[in-house]
Amino acid sequence: MNEPLLRLRDLKVHFPLGAKRLWQPQSVLKAVDGVSLDLYRGRTLGLVGESGCGKSTLARALTGMTAITSGELAFEGRDMSRGSAADWQRLRRDVQMIFQDPLASLDPRMTVGQIVAEPLRHLRKDMSRAQRGERVRAMLERVGLSGAQINRYPHEFSGGQCQRIGIARALVVEPKVLICDEPVSALDVSIQAHIIELLQELQAEFDIGVLFIAHDLAVVRQISDDVTVMYLGRVMEQARGQALFERPAHPYTRALLSAVPRPDPLVERSRERIRLPGDLPSPSDPPSGCVFRTRCPWARADCAQQRPALRTMNASQQAACLHAETIAEATAGTVAEGECLAV
């Protein structure tokens, strides 16, 4: 496989909490705590996990909107982990983002034409005004809107149409990486399918790498080539292709898969779900050892003592669990292995 467009190694994003007191260490919120992953051209990496696990913070760090505490972030081999504001400004054209709330991400005082043209004004100063207008109309039509709508305002569009405008704005400068922060979670199910299909078509057309953030594993399975599962700022499991859905190695992944509804009502009523006790711990005071151990039904004494590193389970799968093999053997043929997720 070619060199990755984005390469992360032990990336951390920590936020200090409150003023530091004399003789006491300052409390720190560990939003992202040592994440490593690779994003390749022409492939989609799905990033999943519960709300509060650090997905959106990681996305903001990848676009320079949030400062990186430590670790390596490289774009096409260029180290951006200590990049200045000027360095990130030069990278803006290559890394673009689509946000979760389609309407809130668009300026209500600007027309659709102005919104989509804004990246061109800042990042393509070589283009004339006429060229920008032509490019904007072509991009709006490519995402399923009409060039005649160029002078309308965001409130005149539906949620799905506003997300199409957001996609047009992100792709109008022809980036190499597209970061999608839960782009379909605020949309109706029928609209979700159209937006996902559009993203797949545009990815193939522009040959870009896509980081697709979501908490819905059914959607992630439909669009992703690779999958990374996060919990409390750390990576629990990584896999290529369908390995994660067919053979989940980490207990947290198994719990997420068991929560996804099945299309067959008979199967849905009869199957047993894995219910995790308690709530997500605070990232400012994470559990020792394995951060998932306080909710894991398979936790043992050594899970509190040792932080598990990502271990290779097979040629296409890694998991951060001390007892992954034992759990897989004890639960073979149960939970979600081989089942078809509903989309």
Rank of each mutant, 00 (worst) to 15 (best):
G289M: 04
R124W: 00
V172E: 08
R109V: 04
V35W: 00
W23R: 05
V172M: 13
I98S: 02
M65I: 14
M230V: 10
Q222R: 15
E201C: 02
A204D: 13
G166D: 04
W88L: 08
V220K: 15
A218L: 09
L341T: 07
P261Y: 09
I195M: 08
P175W: 08
M65N: 08
F99S: 01
A170K: 04
L341C: 08
G54H: 07
Y231W: 12
L6T: 03
P175I: 06
L103M: 11
V235W: 01
V229I: 13
S158R: 08
A299T: 09
P261H: 12
K20M: 00
A67E: 15
L6S: 06
P16Q: 05
G338H: 10
R240Q: 13
L276Q: 06
G18L: 01
E339G: 14
G159C: 10
G144S: 02
R7D: 15
R271V: 04
H250M: 05
I274H: 13
D264M: 13
A301Q: 15
L106P: 02
A309D: 15
D188Y: 09
P263L: 12
R60Y: 11
Q163F: 04
A328M: 14
S70L: 00
V116A: 04
R164L: 11
G34V: 03
A243V: 14
E156C: 11
D188G: 14
M80K: 02
E50Q: 09
H122R: 11
E3D: 15
L322K: 12
A259Q: 02
E182T: 12
P261A: 12
V173G: 05
Y153I: 08
T312K: 12
G241H: 08
V184Y: 09
L62R: 15
V13R: 10
S36D: 15
V229K: 08
I327A: 14
M97H: 05
Q161L: 03
L211E: 00
R307M: 03
M313C: 14
A309T: 13
A239K: 03
A74V: 00
G160I: 03
V95Q: 04
S284P: 06
F75P: 00
L256K: 04
D225P: 01
Q200D: 13
D225S: 12
R234Q: 15
R234T: 13
A320L: 11
P108W: 10
G64V: 09
I167Q: 09
T228V: 14
R164A: 12
Q163H: 00
F15N: 04
T331S: 14
A249V: 08
